[in-house]
Design a binder for these strands. Structure first.
Lengths: 242, 242
DNA sequence: CGGGCACTTGATAGACTTCAACACCTGTGG
DNA sequence: CCACAGGTGTTGAAGTCTATCAAGTGCCCG
């Protein structure tokens, strides 16, 4: 439990939950986040927030909505490299980075703010570092997914990842979560055609792995799926039992 | 030109060239590298240096040989997530990381040493940061490769990446470099079957894209290939004209 | 009511995999 | 010196998975 209670209307709620799951935030950290969240920017769905090769985004906290990080090939093929979900960070540039490695696109109506600076050694700084690690882990998972899994496995594996992350931010209800992606976007993240993704989803529904109706996804046996796909438990959550 | 000359026998040569291409190293940096390289460890080919989930490697400088970073799925499928080449770093753990995200395997007979500490703000530290950025870029490239390219494109794209990196470390001769990987390994990095990779390689040879004979690869038109594959020029090299 | 977008379906083509066998090279031991 | 074994690369045939093309449905919104 957090030491302060947050009404559901507070824009930083997801961020506080998410970062709080990674490290035990202090009052100072909470205040910093709330301060940062008082100056928000909005991007409507399908807007490009940062274009690949342009000046990279400053460290940014995503308060609401989903952001996709994508590459476009010369002939128009698109690959979505990863997502940032409400409550998570993106655009933490390395100091020597002068060009964004991917385009960042709002999938939803998106609300974001500048990420608060973290004192070296603070809990917030630890949370940021765990977040960076999580991001690296997601990239590695994505490579194995695309390289060595078939369509059904890719679908389940990515949905599992999304569920885990949304649970960490308190944005899931049990094994169900709101899915703002079109099948086309989801296909571009999985390296599949929309048509084939559609058929694969139907097969998954029929076999009882998942439901996906009206923008809500339910995984019926996340633990079983995770085991069969060889997904390791992530070790990011803080272990202080608080 | 470096201000000191290095005989070819010096084990840190590739590392000095590689890091020196990223930042203008000072005498102090060079000395640190040479000191670190005086205490080496050896791993024969096909040895596991670090196992996934075990204690992660300390920051390590690879002096000779190639290392693969891989994942194994429950049924034995293998995906090679990336490579570390002679002169490059790996295992730079984030402070909160208690388990390695991938297994690290020696592909070659490998020589490595502990990476020297870099003073914050030093050139060496800048080189490390650029290296981290390069690593992230490689992961993103790998995702697009596996997600949206066909077999021929994957082969050419990965070979281009390897050529670029080896040129940075002075380990390539023009557009030719020594390729210690078996086709099986290469296939596991590209998400293909060895059989299909073999046929694809033959097609590439026939179409004049490359030669691959007795462990040496030549790309006949790297610039043209890069253009057609949409590979961006990397902006990592230092720009001080030194 | 009509238009646009996402989703769905069918038929066909193509890419990649699988299985199996064979060739080649290298090192080893008789 | 030859025989042999094991690993790597090569080839063929058949099968599976995924892409492509094209058309149709349903839904939301103006």
């Amino acid at each position: 439990m957090l030491s302060r209670s947050y009404a559901i209307s507070q824009p930083e709620q997801a961020a506080v939950r998410h970062l709080g799951a990674l490290a035990r935030l202090t009052e100072t950290d909470l205040r910093k986040i709330a301060d940062a969240a008082s100056e928000t920017r909005y991007f409507p769905a399908r807007t490009e927030i940062v274009r690949e090769g342009a000046e990279p985004a400053k460290p940014t906290l995503l308060l609401r909505g989903w952001v996709a990080h994508q590459r476009i090939l010369p002939d128009g093929r698109r690959q979505i490299v990863g997502f940032t979900l409400a409550g998570e960070l993106f655009g933490r540039s390395l100091s020597c980075q002068d060009r964004a490695l991917t385009s960042q696109v709002a999938l939803d109506n998106v609300v974001l703010c500048t990420a608060p600076e973290a004192e070296p050694g603070s809990s917030l700084s630890l949370a940021y570092e765990k977040e960076r690690l999580a991001h690296r882990l997601q990239l590695i998972d994505n490579v194995t997914r695309l390289g060595r899994m078939d369509a059904r496995e890719r679908v389940c594996d990515l949905l599992l990842e999304l569920l885990e992350r949304l649970q960490r931010s308190g944005e899931a209800e049990g094994n169900t979560f709101a899915m703002p992606l079109t099948q086309e976007c989801f296909a571009d993240a999985l390296g599949l055609t929309p048509v084939h993704l559609n058929r694969t989803l139907q097969a998954c529904r029929k076999s009882g792995d998942l439901s996906w109706r009206s923008g809500r996804v339910t995984l019926h046996d996340p633990a079983g799926l995770a085991r069969s796909l060889g997904r390791r438990r992530n070790r990011l959550q803080r272990e202080d039992g608080g």
